[in-house]
Structures are given as C-alpha cells and as structure tokens.
C-alpha cells in the first residue's frame, strides 16, 4: 500500500500502518482507523438497536440482566462462566429471570465486575430523557456523552454514589 492511500482522518482512533513511502522504502505511518473513520455511525446504530431489543426482553421478563450484558459484550456462556468463576450450568440458569432472582448479591457483584458496571446496574436499566425521547444510559455511557447522571464507586463494593444533575429548564 502506498503511503498516500493510507491516510484516514479519524483522530479518535489512531493506528500504525506499514506502507510504501515515496522513496520505495516500507515503513510505519500513523493514521486513522478506516472503519471508525468511515462507519462509526453505523456501529452506533446497530449498538443502539441491539441494546433496545435486549432491554425490551429484560423488561418483559424474558431474560435477565446477565444475558443482557453477556450479549452486549459478545461473550459466550463458557467464557462468561470462566470469567465469573461459576459453572456453565449455573450461569445458564442466571440468564433466566426466575433463577437470576435467587442469585446472591455476592454473585451479582462477580457478574458486574466482569461487565465493568456497578452492581446496582444488575438490577436496573437507566434511561435518560433527551427531549421527547428516552435514551439508554448503557449506550450513552459507552460514548461518554452522559449528561445529568454519574455513577461513582465508593469504598463499599456494594454501594454506588449516583449523582443526578439539576433539571435543565
């Protein structure tokens, strides 16, 4: 690949490509990610749709929050079980809301740690009001565009400080 063909404008995600320089020598160039530079909006649309479909199933009681995060984070049952240190059978049961309800708080904390979310988020779905619409906090938080709400860890592993901003007029 020629150096001139490697240039992508994407300051948010920089990568190193090995390219042919003008003098014929091959070497590294720092540039932007092709996919993020061109198709990030498409990724976000799919992410929003996936989150929405999972959230609806959670709220209907079809799946638990374990399944919600497992699918969102592209983990298999085996991988999640290995990460939380439980058997696959047990994790499989926790995908179902009925069995999830019997899980200990300590177990929920294990799941929350793997998903890198506060343990309280294993029992709640946070939505933010944006004009007439509601938007998922999970997706907004990923984009670091949250306004008005902040979840801060405390020294107590089971308690999060939730800071809610002033209502805007």
């Amino acid at each position: 690949m020629k150096e001139k063909d490697g240039y992508i404008n994407c300051p948010e995600q920089q990568v190193i490509l090995y390219v042919e320089k003008e003098d014929g020598q091959y070497g590294p160039m720092q540039t932007g990610s092709y996919l993020s530079g061109n198709y990030l909006d498409d990724y976000e649309i799919k992410r929003v749709h996936l989150e929405e479909s999972l959230r609806i199933r959670v709220m209907k009681g079809e799946i638990s929050m374990v399944k919600y995060y497992m699918v969102l984070e592209d983990l298999t049952l085996s991988e999640l079980a290995a990460r939380v240190g439980l058997s696959k059978t047990k994790v499989n049961r926790h995908l179902d809301p009925v069995h999830f309800g019997k899980a200990k708080v300590e177990t929920l904390k294990k799941y929350a740690d793997v998903f890198n979310v506060p343990v309280s988020n294993m029992l709640q779905v946070i939505m933010l009001k944006k004009g007439d619409n509601l938007e998922s906090y999970t997706v907004l938080e990923e984009k670091k565009q949250t306004e008005g709400i902040e979840q801060v860890k405390t020294e107590n592993p089971y308690v999060m400080l939730v800071i809610i901003g002033e209502k805007r007029k």
């Binding site: 948010e12 995600q13 993020s36 990030l40 990724y43 976000e44 992410r47 984070e73 592209d74 983990l75 991988e79 990460r83 990923e142 984009k143 670091k144």
Partner: peptide, 8 residues
C-alpha cells in the same frame, strides 16, 4: 481506549 474498540 474508545469504548467501541474495547472487547474482552
């Protein structure tokens, strides 16, 4: 790292 890049 931006969240959309981060995977397990």
């Amino acid at each position: 790292i931006p969240s959309w890049e981060r995977v397990h």
